[in-house]
């Protein structure tokens, strides 16, 4: 399916930022599940520089700014051709041994609740089936609700609440999988979703490593594997690690306002 995507991020800095470096992981992942037809990243202000391709396959761009004040708009847009492989990822330019993704982070470290949940799960020998089980368990345990969690909520905390958004579903699935020694990682991307009322189409899901298949992408907030409606952008240990834009402001006391808008439509 050919998708046109425009992802616009707007910043508003209330006072002058002496020096700002932003690191962007906004370029869609290279793999057989999606083919980039054209893609462009731009910023309304500052110097955009291509940096390097990292071990996870991200094509990293940086924006450098001096004495920045007021509005900044970062646009990442292009056309991409997606294919449905039932979630199995093919041809990722990822150089890491999957066992690197057995480590826990602050956001995914299991506590009593997650351990308790894991004890109720019966492990299957068939890894594929078992991963689907885990995905369904997370889907059924958590109720989708916005506004109750934020970007610092840990997997353990959101399980306690039994509520959350895609990011919380993902963190819990990652935490559970690692308990069963299945390598797991957090993925950021876009989802074309006609049923969603919100124009909110930035999405997060999880890749689990299955020996026979390699990395397989599960979406615990939709109880399925990803298909041609998904576009993969960045991955990492958790939400913070995988975030598509990271910025560091030096000596900046002022405020920062952020909003973003994503448009996805099918090219006819």
């Amino acid at each position: 399916m050919i998708l046109n995507i425009k992802h616009q991020t707007n910043y508003n800095f209330s006072s002058c930022v002496p020096r700002l470096v932003q690191s962007l992981r906004l370029y869609p992942s290279k793999c057989k599940n999606q083919k980039v037809i054209n893609w462009n990243i731009s910023t309304s202000i500052g110097q955009l520089t291509e940096s390097h391709q990292d071990a996870l396959g991200h094509k990293i761009y940086n924006i450098y700014n001096e004495s920045l004040v007021g509005k900044q708009t970062i646009v990442s847009e292009g056309t991409i051709d997606t294919k449905d492989f039932q979630g199995v990822m093919h041809g990722l330019e990822d150089q890491l041994n999957p066992f690197c993704f057995l480590r826990f982070t602050e956001l995914t470290r299991p506590g009593d609740k997650i351990n308790e949940l894991s004890r109720k799960i019966i492990k299957k020998n068939n890894e594929i089936k078992f991963c689907h089980d885990l995905n369904i368990i997370v889907y059924e345990t958590i109720n989708f609700k916005t506004g109750v969690t934020n970007n610092q909520t840990t997997a353990e905390e959101s399980l306690k609440l039994k509520k959350g958004v895609c990011q919380d579903y993902a963190h819990i699935l990652i935490s559970l999988s690692k308990i069963f020694s299945i390598p797991a990682r957090y993925v950021n991307g876009y989802l074309r979703d006609d049923n969603h009322i919100n124009n909110y189409s930035s999405h997060a899901w999880v890749e689990l490593f299955i020996k026979e298949l390699g990395w397989v992408a599960f979406d615990p907030s939709h109880k399925k594997c990803i298909d041609e409606n998904y576009v993969r952008i960045s991955c990492g240990y958790d939400f913070i690690d995988a975030s598509p834009i990271k910025g560091v402001k030096l000596n900046y006391p002022g405020g920062e306002h952020l909003n973003f808008k994503i448009d996805i439509n099918i090219q006819q």
Binding site: D54, A55, L56, Q95, L96, N97, F99, C100, L102, R103
Partner: peptide, 28 residues
């Protein structure tokens, strides 16, 4: 290439699950 792990001289878990193993350095 991680030949030493492939040769099973060191268990893979000891490297890959080690917080001192910096995944960002792989391939650089």
């Amino acid at each position: 290439r991680a030949e030493i792990i492939k040769a099973k001289v060191i268990p893979d878990k000891l490297i890959y699950n080690n917080p001192a193993y910096d995944i960002r350095m792989v391939g650089f």
